[in-house]
Design a protein around this nucleic acid. Structure first.
Lengths: 216, 216
DNA sequence: TAAAAAATAAGGCATTTGTCGTATTGATTA
DNA sequence: TAATCAATACGACAAATGCCTTATTTTTTA
């Protein structure tokens, strides 16, 4: 069984180098690359049959942290390994918070990269030693590390997410209906369904739970 | 003439270290310490013949930012130097807003601390270089210094803030009433007043605006 | 101490929301 | 192709909310 890999990387030389590293192993199948976070997400929209994403951090249009957040909320099954030159606390912490599964520095050699990809697929959290040290330090600092594990991923439809976002802005049923050009009845029905999925009974709770689960 | 110093610090080891630093100089007279902001204010109530307060930020019961606000309003003559491990924008900005006269990091050595205390007494604004840099950046970035400034500070009473916090948790009128042990009618009236102050017309908007203005 | 602000409480009424049930249509999937 | 899902839409009813008025008691401030 081969693992399907996607890459987000703005520097085409580095991207090429990474792809070449991957090509040495026939259990790794490079699928596509995005030149920035947004592009990657756009391509995932078309094909999200991907096992692992190698994600750069600093990219134009959309950085890797933001992209990780979005990918993780939309496709929780995809493993994400940050592959970057930045090893500062801020980035590490944000990447972890965004849901990254691993954090590697770009100097990594092909052999190790291969090993780390396998490791992340097996539920591990591969990272280079220096990063591992920093993560420990971050953990010692009781900053808020959100452990919203895969307790039970709540799945909302696109329309439900739309409506939830409008709800969270403080709009009422009629305003939402106007915005989405559907009838208030439909808005009500959607909200009813959202409440059932989130197991809540009013707007505020719905928004709170949705934010907690990063659904909006 | 000796300067009278008070300290607010929850970690007794750190407090001890600071007091020892002060003891090296005979123009500094350590008066008392509070284990948190509230305690300090309590002790100031008894004796506010103090020139400088060295204030920690993160403390139980009452944090240093809140304490600074209160001390500054009750005893404007007292100079306050934040002495903390936190150098994030948020804290720096809030401390400044609260009226802090200086902002130092805890690693500071005795000599420097002494110098900074004299500096603040002479109307200066002592801060460690890294903090000074961040303050500059904060000033450059006008997005953080938003409308919550002198535009027109919305003032909620304590009770209104209580209720708003409950609202933001998704509780309904009866639940809030139960929690605060008041009648639902009173809760309604408070919420009505909150809406008027924030110029909103429902819970969600109230919470959104309150968060934007950091009222909760 | 007098005045102002804050906290408490109730009644009434229109509007909005939460929860049912039911139903049609197009798209996706097994 | 049959079944399921997603999106659309209405009606009805109870509960909750928003908005107005009035009023008493504490607490704070001038």
């Amino acid at each position: 069984m081969t693992l399907k890999i996607a890459i987000a990387e703005d520097n085409s030389f580095l991207a090429k180098a990474v792809i070449e590293k991957l090509s040495f192993f026939n259990d790794l199948d490079f699928k596509f690359k995005g030149n920035n976070g947004a592009e990657l997400i756009g391509k995932l929209e078309v094909n999200h049959n991907i096992d692992v994403i190698l994600m750069d951090i600093q990219m134009p249009e959309m950085d890797g942290i933001t992209a990780t957040e979005i990918v993780k909320s939309k496709y929780p099954h995809i493993k994400i390994i940050m592959l970057t030159v930045f090893d500062d606390d801020e980035n590490i912490f944000n990447a972890i918070k965004a849901g990254a599964n691993g954090y590697l520095l770009k100097e990594i050699d092909a052999e190790n990269l291969h090993k780390c990809i396998l490791e992340v697929i097996n539920g591990g959290a591969p990272m280079t030693p220096s990063i591992a040290l920093k993560t420990l330090n971050l953990l010692r600092n009781p900053l808020i590390i959100d452990n919203s594990e895969e307790v039970e991923k709540i799945k909302l439809t696109n329309r439900e997410t739309d409506i939830l976002e409008h709800l969270s802005k403080g709009l009422n049923y009629n305003e939402i209906a106007d915005n989405l050009i559907i009838s208030p009845s439909t808005v009500r029905k959607h909200i009813e369904n959202i409440y059932k999925k989130l197991q809540v009974h009013n707007k505020m709770e719905a928004v709170l739970i949705a934010q907690k689960h990063k659904l909006i």
